[in-house]
Design a protein around this nucleic acid. Sequence first.
DNA 1: TTGAAAGCGCTAACAT
DNA 2: ATGTTAGCGCTTTCAA
Lengths: 343, 343
Amino acid sequence: MAKKVTIATVAKYAGVSRQTVSNVLNSPEVVREETRRKVYEAVEALGYRVSQAARQMRTGRSRLIATRIESTGDGINGSVLDRFLHALTESAAQNGYRVLLYTAADDDAEIATYEDLLGTYKPDAFVLASTHHRDTRTTWLAERRLPFVTFGRPWDAPDRHLWVDVDGAAGTEAATRHLLEAGHERIGFLGWPAGSGVGDDRRQGWLRAMAAAGQDPTGLDHACPDEVPAAEAVVGELLGRDPVPTALVCASDSLALGALQASRALGRPLAVTGFDDTPVARAIGLTSVSQPLEEAAARCVRLLTRLLDGEAEAKESVLLRPSLVVRDTTYPPSEQSRSGHSP
Amino acid sequence: MAKKVTIATVAKYAGVSRQTVSNVLNSPEVVREETRRKVYEAVEALGYRVSQAARQMRTGRSRLIATRIESTGDGINGSVLDRFLHALTESAAQNGYRVLLYTAADDDAEIATYEDLLGTYKPDAFVLASTHHRDTRTTWLAERRLPFVTFGRPWDAPDRHLWVDVDGAAGTEAATRHLLEAGHERIGFLGWPAGSGVGDDRRQGWLRAMAAAGQDPTGLDHACPDEVPAAEAVVGELLGRDPVPTALVCASDSLALGALQASRALGRPLAVTGFDDTPVARAIGLTSVSQPLEEAAARCVRLLTRLLDGEAEAKESVLLRPSLVVRDTTYPPSEQSRSGHSP
DNA sequence: TTGAAAGCGCTAACAT
DNA sequence: ATGTTAGCGCTTTCAA
């Protein structure tokens, strides 16, 4: 077993005092160049690494960012948060932080976890995803002036805290415009029941594009829970009624998949766009709105580090633009799209 | 800002010494019942929580389990590891551990991360997923006698370490039997190119079931990279040749989806089974082999805690049985399966 | 620029 | 059964 190498070991090896080593590590500019070099060499040679626990005892900072890992639920959209989490872990590491995970069944349980974590591991900050109306978590954290960033806008009281989000409305607007340009006349929307921040935002984008094109959205706005079978049922019924929409902008890839299945089952052509560019969309060749998750995660970390360094500027919150990934999804598939899939 | 409550605060509040509080926390049985109760009350009243950093300085244990979050790749199968990670986080928490995340591009990068982590955050143990042939990570950790468990068998040198895995061969065997019982005669296999532990294992299950049924597998074994379009291409070609398989056991839901798409595009019926029961399988009604991930995660944590408590018994490694989730995937969909999807 | 001393909160060993 | 002492590895005064 390798002997433990502490700051003292390094000091001895480099022929300086323990203090000097600490200085080199924490404020290098205060140490003479040559000494610094010697210390760095010793660190290298011995493979020294600062003990977080010891450092934390002195400084009170853990260099830990806590975040929740959600249960994947329906799953198709769950992959979005997983990708975000991956990107967050990477960005955090690049900035000298590590990500600590927890689970929670609901907001209250999550708040209870904050209390526990803050007493034990003392994470320097939290990253919250899936913000929603009447989000008690942000209130709780804000009241205690704890550092945190949300991935997702505050849907009620704007700007009580830092956040990063993706402009969902811009995404559905782009999708709608794309369908308009492809010559579609009756473009419907399939979203979630009104009342969810994200869902309503995505509906707005569709409405905006329709208005801009002088189209009447009346009777074209549909909603159901975010599940494939539910969407399939709704769209199945839809396709049996007159007038039939020729295209459908969906609030998620789950809904889009359901819509597509309904159209296939009934043999009625329907152009469909999804949201989140999930693996499924990629797999089945579905046009979908793609969120810049790596960018979002990086921004979260950046806001957090600045916040922790006291450089928090109130209005640094970020709204990112998504992009539209266009794929061929006419049904039945054209020869062209088929061949596009072959290696 | 709430004043910091340490063990001393609790001691004063309860009218005992600091040590007694520590005893109550760490070896309650050594303290008189009444004193214990007083201390618990004080802890409760003050909302006291032990500082991990301080405890770690004394005990050398961080109560942290480190694990890698993988980039989702193709994504359809990625969701499996995400679910495992979620379950791991939950099991860990139930046992007083937290999960620390890291990313790594390959084995070497991962080993470098071990070195860093062990020097800084000092996780008590690692959980590795996606074991493969010539896995240098397990060797590195084992050589240093560091505590770890893998989710996935050691595919080369068996039993140099603790592991938990799911019997993939049993899964594909069950899938094959299911198809045989449904009356299929020519049941093919679509897997990954030979050489991957997991892939070869799943192929074995199919072979076993075929042999048991007295079927000749010659010419029915196919392989391609684990991507939907690749599978689509392979199966597309397959369906144009004589003799055509009537069913296909696939090594993943990605492959199964590709197979299904090919069969639909060509209008040739084909029964398909997938592996992992991913959200996609659920969404499109695909029969698939389901891994007991919660159970697997719980077993990992259990092995780890025992290992850390020195109760490590060499051969406690666990091979879990998957289950077959049967869904109706004939094409075109029968009335029955349709209606099953409606709410 | 470098060194010496103190203490963060906890627990293991020992003493009462 | 309870209290006292010491020290984990680090950084922050303060002094040299």
